[in-house]
Design a protein around this nucleic acid. Sequence first.
DNA 1: GGTCAACATTGGCATAGACCAATGGTGTTG
DNA 2: CAACACCATTGGTCTATGCCAATGTTGACC
Lengths: 240, 240
Amino acid sequence: MSSDVAHATPKYYLLKTELLGLMAGLRPGTLIPTERALAEKYATSRTTVRQAISELVAEGKLGRIQGHGTFVAPPKVTHVRQLTSFSDDARAQRLRSDSTVLALDVMISDAEVSAHLGLDQGKTVTRLERIRLIEGEPLAHETAWLPGKLPRFKSSLAKAGSLYAVLADVYGIRIAEVEDTVETALAGPEDVRRLGIEMGAPLLVVHRLARDAAGAPVEWTRSAFRGDRFRFVSRVKSGN
Amino acid sequence: MSSDVAHATPKYYLLKTELLGLMAGLRPGTLIPTERALAEKYATSRTTVRQAISELVAEGKLGRIQGHGTFVAPPKVTHVRQLTSFSDDARAQRLRSDSTVLALDVMISDAEVSAHLGLDQGKTVTRLERIRLIEGEPLAHETAWLPGKLPRFKSSLAKAGSLYAVLADVYGIRIAEVEDTVETALAGPEDVRRLGIEMGAPLLVVHRLARDAAGAPVEWTRSAFRGDRFRFVSRVKSGN
DNA sequence: GGTCAACATTGGCATAGACCAATGGTGTTG
DNA sequence: CAACACCATTGGTCTATGCCAATGTTGACC
């Protein structure tokens, strides 16, 4: 059942298994031999070594820094996502969360944002673009669009920290339902710059549409999570 | 803000953009030029062309068949996942779903399965391993473990088709809550064989734990979905 | 007319080598 | 002793090339 598979298994994949064995028992952060050293040790080319290492990096099992070396990666962070906000979710798991605001402005909605928020194109929307950090590490790039212009939004957000807390406490908007769409994507130059990952790294791209009790769209968000460091959990109970 | 990015953008990434332009307007299935032809046209090496194409394949924008060529891929399938079963979800979207049973047996639970189902190790569990098809196309490999041994399970499943329908109608077990864990992974030789995808293709690996109204684990499932063809949607209403 | 063998085409894997870019250490210098 | 220039090391990108494996077509043969 598996011998014909073994026959067809390419060399770089065998090397991947070899490296996993080599990594076993090493603590996260430990440097493994250089690409050139591995190529010589396993009598192969650096190209083949790099293909093996690249996949292990994409899987979150190795990390690498140009000029420094390749090292065993820390385990994935599991993030429980419910009706709540990023910061609440993190706090519930005793994880230190933080966020950097890249942009907070009022703009005219484009076709995509309009469609999701159920607005006519050209309406005013508030945009909030942030980097999400867990334990000090950049984990996601997130852009949220909210219908209309929210008075004193910036100062409220600065004080409360959490978007959902501001919506509830300052504007009386309560999220009653969310719809998350999850898909895979590969990191481009923008993602590389913002998240400090490498080109082509797998991402979990989540689009969230949140509605209030009346079913009116309250928020539409695009989040790009690092697929190599992140695990997404959602709980659903009966009654939906 | 973006000029320094452009400066650092590697050639294979520029080529990716170039290919996206070339693909625009082409119908799914249309062959694009061969790797060797593209290498010559854009005055680069085949290696670089392959790196660009490989990422587009991983993103689900291109597909390729050895000995045949590289073609524009069909759009992703959106799959809504709720408390319901795979077949119910698909039917709700007017998609033709099907599944192939690879294994259906009774076995002794290992450490991992025991832990998730809340059993002592070495207990009897029923295993159901299937390939899930949408519109005739393999979309996921799925293995479900259920506690104990279910009488007349095979014939019931053959008749009903849906696992959840069998649980409800034959055994009176109603799923009250599910917890899904989503993460990215890369396809290995097994996945390649079972799903007809290529080595290193991104996967969405979902672990689902389903419980009944009393909170007792009813089913633990590992599903590997093709990340290039699949989009995962979950809806959550308030009250959770 | 159908069957099968041979062959050209196309993607898949791997090699060897070159140069660039980031990092970190070394040693000089103020 | 601190700051800085230099340099070796290491990963990042790219080239050029060869052979293998799957596919599909062509043409010989029955």
